[in-house]
Structure formats: structure tokens, C-alpha cells
């Protein structure tokens, strides 16, 4: 077995009297897609924000490639190769694809003492990276607002990959998408995984998780209910664990097993 890219051990996070996370452990291997499942309020968001440096854990250890780290900011996490694509904050719709792609890391061309945004390079790289992800842009200065929701996620993923992400955290990338766009995003995940990047895929949709996941960790009320390998677990079991094994039991018959 290869060594994990990132490992989080017994993470606890308290917000005042509220215990949002109460001992969550997860590890991500190179080239695997690790699905993090959980219902609303299970602590998924808090957990990935801890992983990406937004929150500091109250207790617990974070190990990146075996070394213990403490992220002071999202920038720290990014430098360690942990990139996060947030569901609604991935892109700025009024800005062009190129401007979005390079936001915060713009290439510089010097003319004498002056430093300019190197649009020639930026546009060429953006077009190429988009093409690799299967999106043919009309032009690199087309506004991101003209892209579909799935394409926006893909641009954000391509950006993270291009800037050297080793672990890619995707926060519910499919939750607002239609069937076809979801398929596009899932195939993008497969593409990224093939490069040896570890993907953390957060979702509450068991079907989406089973389509691309290698391992599945279920969160419920701030705790991990264990990690299952692909093939070891049935959709119904995941579903039950997410719901805490209760309320959904009666619905199963009429809903055909999965939600």
C-alpha cells in the first residue's frame, strides 16, 4: 500500500459549546477518490474547512505525506498541495475564464521596470488546460458566466490541477447540477485521479459517490462511522449510515431503495 498524501487523525472541532467534529479520521491515497458522505449538519463542511486550512482543529493531528502540519490559512494548505473547489465560490461569473483561471497567481511579463499581466501566456495555457479537460472554449476571454455549472466546476478543477494540487477537495460539486453535467464532473474526477492526485469527494448522493469512489467514509453527527472499501458496501448501507440508521427505513419500499 502506498503512503497517504494526507492523513487526519481524531480531529475535533468545537465552536464554543457546540462540538461540530468529535473525532474524525480520514486518509487520502494518491490516485484514489475518497468519498466523504454525510447528511446536512453531519460536519462535512467543518471537516473540509479544517482540511483546507480555514479552521484550526481543536484537537487531533494533520499529517501531510507523513509530516505533521498546522495550517494557519488556506494559503498554507494550498502551498502544501491541498486545493479546495467550493460549490458556489469556485468562479467569478463576470470575469473571463483566463482571469478566473489565473486569479491570485497571474503570470507576469516585465517591460523595463513595469510588470504586466502576461495575457498571451495566460490565454494559451488556459485554452490548453481546458481542452485537456474536454471543454473547448470559444475564446479565453469569454466570461465564466456563459459556462454551465458543470463547466465552471471543471474550470476550477483544472485550475487546481494545473497549479500542482496533490489533494483535491471537491465540496458537493454535483449537488446543484443536472444529470448530464453531473456525468461531466464525475468524468473529470476520473481524469484527475488518473494523474495520481488524491480526490476527496464530498456529497450526500450515494449514487454519485458509488460511480467514482474507491473508499467511502460516512460522517454522522460529527463522528466517522467507519471507512468502507468499494465493493464491500451496498448503497443501502451507506444510505442508512448517513441517516443514522433510522428514519429512512420506512421509506425504502416506495422509493426503491435509494434517495
Amino acid at each position: 500500500m502506498t503512503n497517504p498524501l494526507i492523513e487526519l487523525v481524531d480531529i475535533e472541532k468545537h465552536f464554543g459549546p457546540v462540538i461540530a467534529l468529535n473525532g474524525v479520521s480520514i486518509s487520502v491515497l494518491p490516485g484514489e477518490c475518497h468519498c466523504l458522505l454525510g447528511d446536512n449538519g453531519a460536519g462535512k463542511s467543518t471537516f473540509i474547512k479544517t482540511m483546507s486550512g480555514v479552521h484550526k482543529p481543536t484537537r487531533g493531528r494533520i499529517l501531510v505525506e507523513g509530516r505533521e502540519v498546522a495550517f494557519a490559512s488556506p494559503r498554507d494548505a494550498m502551498q502544501a498541495g491541498i486545493a479546495t473547489v467550493y460549490q458556489d465560490l469556485a468562479m467569478i461569473p463576470l470575469m473571463s475564464v483566463t482571469r478566473n483561471f489565473w486569479m491570485g497567481r497571474e503570470p507576469i511579463r516585465k517591460i523595463g521596470p513595469l510588470r504586466f499581466f502576461d495575457f498571451q501566456k495566460a490565454n494559451a495555457v488556459t485554452m490548453e488546460e481546458m481542452r485537456k479537460m474536454g471543454i473547448n472554449l470559444r475564446e479565453p476571454d469569454q466570461a465564466v458566466g456563459t459556462l454551465s455549472g458543470g463547466e465552471r466546476q471543471t474550470v476550477a478543477i483544472a485550475r487546481a490541477v494545473y497549479f500542482g494540487a496533490k489533494v483535491l477537495i471537491l465540496d458537493e460539486p454535483t449537488s446543484a447540477l443536472g444529470v448530464r453535467q453531473t456525468a461531466n464532473v464525475l468524468s473529470t474526477i476520473a481524469r484527475v485521479r488518473a494523474k495520481g492526485i488524491g480526490v476527496v469527494f464530498i456529497t450526500h448522493n450515494v449514487r454519485h459517490a458509488l460511480a467514482v469512489g474507491d473508499r467511502f467514509t460516512v460522517l454522522n453527527r460529527g463522528r466517522t462511522l467507519g471507512t468502507a472499501l468499494r465493493g464491500e458496501v451496498k448503497p443501502e448501507e451507506l444510505q442508512d449510515m448517513m441517516a443514522g440508521g433510522q428514519e429512512l427505513a420506512e421509506l425504502e419500499g416506495s422509493l426503491g431503495g435509494t434517495v
Binding site: R75, L89, I92, R99, M103, G104, E106, F117
Partner: peptide
């Protein structure tokens, strides 16, 4: 200039990528 656009377009998204 890109940072100006980004700050006004969506400050939180811009912060997340280090602007």
C-alpha cells in the same frame, strides 16, 4: 487589476485563491 476585478466580483472566492 485582476485583483481589483476579483475583489469586487466575489471577495470570498478571491480570498480563497489568495488574493
Amino acid at each position: 487589476g485582476n485583483w481589483i476585478f476579483a475583489s469586487g466580483g466575489d471577495a470570498q472566492a478571491a480570498r480563497y485563491v489568495g488574493v
